[in-house]
């Protein structure tokens, strides 16, 4: 028997990416489950409570150390509160997004529902994208819910609307890459515990590894630039500057700090010209741009690899 006894099934109409996403049963199921009961409300309240507490502590710590917040220093207080909130949000999303995705595929195996899904017509990409989108939607909800808190810094001054916008882009990009890493490890590991451990190791290195490395690298750069009587050639100098820029652009904290430096020193949200020692200038994009592109690229690669892994496991 080689020929089918069944009629060829009807071809489905072609759906747009948005339609496919909103009709994805995994997205609907996950969001329904996540928002049900008081769990989502508790997580959201705890998230905002933690950030509010942190902002209040930062504010009082600053006013206690500077004395008067009414005057020029209130702008700095605004920046301190805003920077503090963005910093803690970066840490939160770097560790919360993986928590939602590290069990996405391995959890299905542990619940013994993975094989049920595999015998349905649900494609591997719908499963992976559905899990990722639903997990990230909730984290993005946490980020958007905290925008009014960040906007409190406007009352104190010193924070521009583009800073809020850029911080949100950095946070969403970090959320995306953290979630993608979680789902990748979830697909390659049998158990959620193993996937979570590997994801958190990545998150630690991603968020804190580079700043620690920079503590060593920045003095080395300074030594290189200022200790030699003759400056390096313009090509080497440009390569070193771009190399440093690339290192900054693969770390969320460094990206946030150096983007802020660009905004303060040059009032530029997108980039500036950097003058080399020979007087020529090279263009330097603001770090949030290459960082966002890096996160998009890494997330895309990880999602595509994860889909292939799930597909390969289906046919093994």
């Amino acid at each position: 028997m080689t020929e089918s006894a069944l009629p060829i099934p009807d071809k489905k109409p072609r759906l747009s990416f948005r339609e496919r996403l909103t009709r994805n049963p995994v997205v609907i199921k996950e969001l329904r489950g996540r928002m049900r009961g008081n769990r989502a409300f508790v997580v959201l309240t705890a998230h905002l409570g933690l950030i509010s507490l942190f902002a209040v502590l930062l504010y009082f710590a600053y006013t206690a150390s500077s004395g008067n917040v009414y005057g020029p220093s209130s702008q700095i207080a605004g920046k301190v509160v805003f920077g503090g909130i963005v910093g803690i949000e970066l840490l939160i999303v770097s560790f919360v997004a993986p928590a939602f995705t590290a069990g996405a595929i391995s959890g299905e195996r542990e619940r013994q529902t993975y094989e049920l899904l595999r015998t349905t017509l649900l494609p591997a990409r719908s499963l992976v994208l559905g899990k990722l989108v639903s997990a990230l939607s909730f984290v993005v909800l946490l980020l958007f819910a905290a925008i009014p808190l960040k906007s409190l810094a406007f009352l104190l001054g010193g924070v521009a609307p583009e800073e809020v916008a850029i911080s949100l882009v950095i946070l969403v990009a970090t959320t995306m890459v953290s979630g993608a890493v979680g789902i990748f490890f979830s697909a390659i590991m049998r158990r959620t515990l193993g996937a979570s451990v590997l994801t958190y190791v990545f998150a630690l290195v991603f968020v804190l590894g580079l700043p620690l490395l920079m503590i060593v690298l920045i003095p080395a750069y300074q030594y290189f630039f200022y200790s030699y009587s003759s400056s390096p050639g313009p090509v080497l100098e440009a390569a070193l500057i771009y190399g440093f820029g690339l290192l900054v652009a693969v770390n969320p904290l460094a990206t946030a700090v150096f983007t802020e430096v660009f905004l303060i020193e040059d009032h530029s949200a997108f980039g500036r010209a950097y003058a080399l020692s020979n007087g020529s200038a090279i263009p330097l994009p603001s770090p949030w741009i290459p960082y966002t592109l890096f996160c998009l690229f890494l997330s895309l690669v990880l999602v595509l690899v994860t889909i292939q892994i799930v597909k390969r496991k289906e046919t093994s």
């Binding site: 329904r32 489950g33 049900r36 013994q112 529902t113 049920l116």
Partner: peptide
């Protein structure tokens, strides 16, 4: 299958 996969909630 010979097991019942349960989704919480």
């Amino acid at each position: 299958p010979d097991f019942f996969g349960v989704y919480d909630d």
